[in-house]
Structure formats: structure tokens, C-alpha cells
Design a protein around this nucleic acid. Structure first.
Lengths: 238, 238
DNA sequence: CGAGCCAAAACAGTATACACTATAAACTTA
DNA sequence: TAAGTTTATAGTGTATACTGTTTTGGCTCG
């Protein structure tokens, strides 16, 4: 309402999928104010389509944890420290294994992409450009994750990583954190180049532990589930 | 069409959630023929409601992997050997850790429930009642999974376990398999009773490995993603 | 001046109707 | 008789309209 986000349809076929993609990219890019309300009818009007596809897309995003559906519009979830800890626990379990897989399956082209993303991240860190750094980081992760042959594994990781990434935008502006992240990326990259699955596993473990520590240290602590923060109230689950 | 499944609304709040629950239970219980087509308008007529809530529920189930949405109705996915292997890999990563958690947090009432489920499973196995065995198995799992304090972890596990469980119905009728499963349940239960997180971790690891082996050995092998089996063609994902 | 209540607006849930697409079956032709 | 084409039907995708609920703002009463 107060600040209409610009949305454009991305050609993909299904309207629902288009809207879904668009909103998700908007969220991932951080173009969404923390308290911003996403209202289906508004977005529909902005896109010149009806409410239904928008509504479907929003509900899918809610189900995936990108949004929370309150009684009054959809909005970004405010992750508590517990939420973040939970997500990082799952990531710790999954990502090292996935990295080990990737060490086996990454192609030469992928390694080139990773190298480019790594350089980009270093440049962005040196320039203090948080946004570029964020993008390079995502590119790096998407690349090696794409090489993991277990689709369910990589998709699950991508989802959970995205959840914290939304909040992590803040800590990623922090200069020392950027340095730590770059070092971790480089270590992982080198393991990939050597096709050393064990090293990839270990370094990814280390990387995630570091990321969590950094996050916990720097996060503006919306402490444990006090009555205020709405946290993640999943609805209608088993 | 040919065989209308009986559906009843379960009181929970909004229609979408009710329908979702109902269909999911139907799937989990195995009351759905492998080739059965789920058509929104049919279900809607059967429940005396409109298509929309049914459609939403079906799409949610598709997104969660319980169903696949073809151009002609929704149907059960036919998991290939690769699919099953992928799912078991994720389960191997997640469940031992979750079991270790549960060993710490399970209450006395929970242990009673687990003991009851275990006895029930043993009785069902002795009687050769595959259906009862299946139910007891689910009760056991849901109980300890409910005690895991990391919601995201337990929900992710529940989902993946359900996916193979649908297909596992077949192997679970096999007498020797039932014996193996019961032995595994008992081992895990005893670790829980002793509140031994390490033992719970190890035994769960062993249990899942066993389950996978059993499955692979007995499964009517819809082999690797040949052109025929439609497998899991997720639509509109990243 | 503050608190409680009532009314109106905003927004999600649900229903119905229409359009478009893909699949399958039937008919025609070679 | 077989193969290709066309048509019909089944089923999803999208739109619009309506209803119920919750929240917010204003008004009145204490």
C-alpha cells in the first residue's frame, strides 16, 4: 500500500508460476520491507490479472516458509533466534553431504562459474558493496547446488538456506563477516577443484558453523518466541 | 471415476485444510489405487463444496510430493529406484539426529505411547495383519517425531518418510520384513527408554539402512528414470 | 480525557462460470 | 487393415462475484 513494489511478469507459462517466481525473486533480493503487507488483490491489479493466480502463488510461498499468512494480508516472517538455530541445524545435517556430492559431479563449466562468483564476491567485499556480495554468494551456492544429483536434497537445502538468507542480508553487510564468508567460499571452491569430497564435506561443515556463529553474534536479537514476534505459525499441518 | 473413494470432511477450520487432511490420510492409508485419478470437480461434488478448496488442497499435495499433477487429473507418483534412493539418503542424514533429540525430550506419556505402538506392531506382525502393522508403525514414528523440538526438522522428516511409505505399503506386507522392522523399533524404543541419545542415533541409522535394503530388494523395480515412468516431474520450481 | 462499543472497510475464503488445452477415440483414406 | 487427422470431451487455468470475519477508526458515554 504505502510503497508499491514493482512487479513484472516473467514468461514461463502458467500465471501462478510466473507470479510465484516474481514474488520469490523479490523476497530473495530483499526488496521487501520487513513489515510490508502483500495483498493479493493489489498485486493482481498491478499485474493486470485476477486474484486467483496471485493467491495461489502467495499460499505456495506461505507453505514453503517464505511468507506468513496472517488474517490480514501476507507478510515476511520474523525469525526468532530459535527459528534460525533450527534452520541451521538442518543445514548442518544436509549441506556437507551435498557438497561432497558436488565435489564428484561438478563439471569444468561449473568450476569456471564458481571461480567467477568467487572473484565477484571478493571484489564486492573489497568494494563494500553488500548487494553485489549477496548476489555473488547466491550465484556460488546455486551453481554447486545445481550439480548435486539428488534433487530432493538440493531443493530442501535451497529452501532452508533461502529462509535465513532473507534475514542474513543484514549481517552480510558487515565487513568482517564478508571476509569470513569469502574465506569459506574459497576453501570450499578449492576442495571442489581438487574433487576432494572429504575436504568439501569438512569445509562446508566449518563454513556453516561459522555462518551461524556470525549470525547469532550480529543479529538484532528478536529473542525467543516472546508473545510479540509472530514467528512461524504454520497452519493446518500434521 | 471407476471407484469413487469415500471422503468425509474433518472438522478443522477452513475447507482447504479439511480437504487436504482428508486426502492426505487417504493417501497414507493406501486407499488409493496406483493409477487412480483424483479429479477436483469430482471430489468437490462428493463433499458438496466448490472446486476451489479441493483444487488448493490438491496443489498443496502436489507441491509436497504426495501427488503429481498431470494434464489430466492428479495421481500418485510412481517412484523410481533413483527416487527412493534419493529419499533414503535424505532420511539417513536427518532421522538419526532427530532420534537423538527425541531421546532427550520424550516424556513419560510419550514412552507409554511408544510402548503401546510397539506391542501393537508386534501383535500385527504375529497376526500377519499388514494394515494394522502399518498403522502401528505410523503411530510409533509420529510419536517420537512429535517430541523433536526442531519443528522444521521433524516436518521435513515426516514428509520424506511419507513419500516412501506410500510405496512401502507393499514391502510391509512381507513377513520377514515385518520382523526386521519390529526388531528395529524395539532397539530404538529401548534407546529412548534409557534416554541414550547416542544409541538412538546409531540404531536409527541402522534401522533406515535396513529399511532401504529391504525396500530395494523387494520392490517391484520400476527401474531408473526410463521414458515410461513419469517419476516426479515437479512443475514451476526454481 | 479516557475507555468501550459500534460501524465500516479491508481482505481472505468460497462459489460459480467461462475459456483453453491436451488426450483419446473415431472416422476416413490410402 | 493401418495410419493419420479431426473432433469431442474431460479437466485444468483464470476470472469475477459474494460472503464472512477481523481490524481499525470514530463516536459516545462515563
Amino acid at each position: 500500500m504505502t510503497e508499491t513494489i514493482e512487479l513484472k511478469r516473467v514468461g514461463d507459462g502458467n500465471l501462478r508460476a510466473q507470479v510465484y517466481q516474481q514474488i520469490r525473486l523479490t523476497i530473495q533480493h530483499g526488496d521487501l520491507a520487513p513489515g510490508q503487507k502483500l495483498v493479493d488483490v493489489d498485486i493482481a491489479a498491478q499485474l493486470g490479472i485476477s486474484r486467483m493466480p496471485v493467491r495461489d502463488a502467495l499460499m505456495q510461498l506461505v507453505h514453503e516458509g517464505y511468507l506468513v499468512g496472517t488474517t490480514r494480508g501476507f507478510t515476511l516472517p520474523t525469525l526468532t533466534a530459535t527459528d534460525v538455530a533450527d534452520i541451521f541445524e538442518v543445514r548442518r545435517l544436509l549441506e556437507p553431504r551435498a557438497a561432497a556430492h558436488a565435489a564428484r559431479t561438478l563439471g569444468a563449466a561449473d568450476l569456471k562459474t564458481l571461480a567467477a562468483a568467487l572473484r565477484e564476491a571478493e571484489a564486492a567485499a573489497a568494494a563494500g558493496d553488500a548487494d553485489r556480495f549477496f548476489q555473488a554468494n547466491s550465484a556460488f551456492r546455486n551453481c554447486w547446488l545445481g550439480a548435486v544429483e539428488n534433487e530432493r536434497l538440493s531443493q530442501t537445502i535451497a529452501r532452508f538456506a533461502d529462509h535465513v538468507l532473507v534475514v542474513r542480508l543484514r549481517t552480510l553487510s558487515h565487513q568482517p563477516t564478508q571476509a569470513v564468508v569469502v574465506a569459506g567460499m574459497r576453501a570450499i571452491y578449492e576442495a571442489f577443484v581438487k574433487r576432494d569430497a572429504v575436504a568439501a564435506y569438512d569445509r562446508m561443515t566449518h563454513f556453516i558453523q561459522n555462518a551461524e556463529e556470525r549470525f547469532m553474534k550480529l543479529s538484532p536479537p528478536a529473542q525467543h518466541s516472546s508473545g510479540e514476534g509472530e514467528s512461524m505459525s504454520q497452519r493446518g499441518k500434521s
